[in-house]
Nucleic acid binder design. Structure first.
Length: 271
DNA sequence: CGGACAACCTGGCGGC
DNA sequence: TGCCGCCAGGTTGTCC
């Protein structure tokens, strides 16, 4: 589900409800999502810590506490939102974590497929340290991108999905960026010309920024914390459009498996 | 390093 | 309607 724009949307939405709040208690019913520490220690340790900041790194939601960092990953179907503690619980049967806050509200982590993860650690870099650069950061330049590409071989699409190469891109935005840059998903990294590299760099930023503007893409599970859908799905040019006419050249969008992922592209204008 | 595949889970959808 | 197989926005570990 959530890629960089969706996670960024979630973070921006819940931040004002969380910063400054004290975590008074935690309820959970899916221990396997908790990667560290063990449940008993987790509950004891997080209790009474104050939320200092809420940020995003790649697809992780990074909640800075008084003494630790709470890292949440939504994976395919995770949702995160803040509601009153007495708000209807039955309307969402996939809530697996509830963080009770000092003002009678609570942060809920809902996850139908149970792929999501939770870490509580004083050393977030042990988890975040292997991630590649943030594509939207101003200090990540075209030269940086070109240099990183130069060190790689293999198909470009799986490379864009590799979080150690670039952080935050997922299947939708990889397909959209490659389409906008007119690059076929099976092209190898080393085959990209300087012009293509620049086009891809700009396309990655363009689609991610558009995704944030549109508050994410709601296809299946993703919703904004307030329950509304994002609208990026109304601006897809490649993803999910197999069989339809290409909005760029009028050709027919194809779908194939590349790197074990469904991949949508236009054979006539992505070369 | 790169590619292929299995695992982790559940729900939604198309087909029969 | 009911059942079945397939697909899904992600990541990680294993094997070649």
């Amino acid at each position: 589900m959530p890629e960089l724009p969706e996670v960024e949307t979630v973070v921006r939405s819940i931040r004002p409800d969380l910063v400054g709040q004290i975590i008074e208690g935690v309820w959970l019913d899916w221990e396997r999502a908790l990667k560290t520490p063990a449940p008993v220690a987790f509950v004891a340790r997080i209790r009474n810590q104050t939320i200092q900041a809420v940020n995003r790194r790649a697809k992780y939601i990074v909640i800075e506490l008084s003494d630790d960092y709470l890292l949440l990953h939504l994976k395919m179907s995770g949702r995160l939102y803040v509601v009153a503690q007495d708000a209807q619980h039955e309307s969402d049967k996939w809530v697996h974590f509830r963080f009770q806050l000092g003002n009678a509200s609570e942060l809920r982590f809902s996850d139908a497929r149970k792929f999501g993860t939770v870490h509580l650690t004083s050393e977030p870099e042990t988890i975040l340290g292997r991630l590649g650069p943030e594509p939207l950061n101003a200090d990540f330049t075209l030269a940086d991108f070109a240099e990183r590409l130069r060190q790689r071989r293999g198909a470009i699409k799986p490379l864009l999905l590799n979080q150690a190469f670039l952080a935050g891109i997922g299947n939708i935005y990889a397909d959209e960026a490659l389409h906008q840059a007119h690059i076929a998903p099976l092209r190898t990294a080393e085959s990209l010309s300087a012009e293509e590299t620049e086009a891809l760099f700009g396309a990655i930023r363009g689609v991610l920024e558009k995704g944030i503007e549109r508050q994410g893409a709601s296809i299946n599970w993703y919703r904004q914390p307030d329950g509304r859908s994002g609208s990026m799905q109304d601006d897809f040019w490649a993803y999910g459009r197999d069989g339809q006419n290409c909005r760029t050249c009028g050709g027919v969008i194809q779908k194939r498996v590349v790197g074990q992922r469904g991949t949508h592209f236009c054979p006539s204008c992505q070369k």
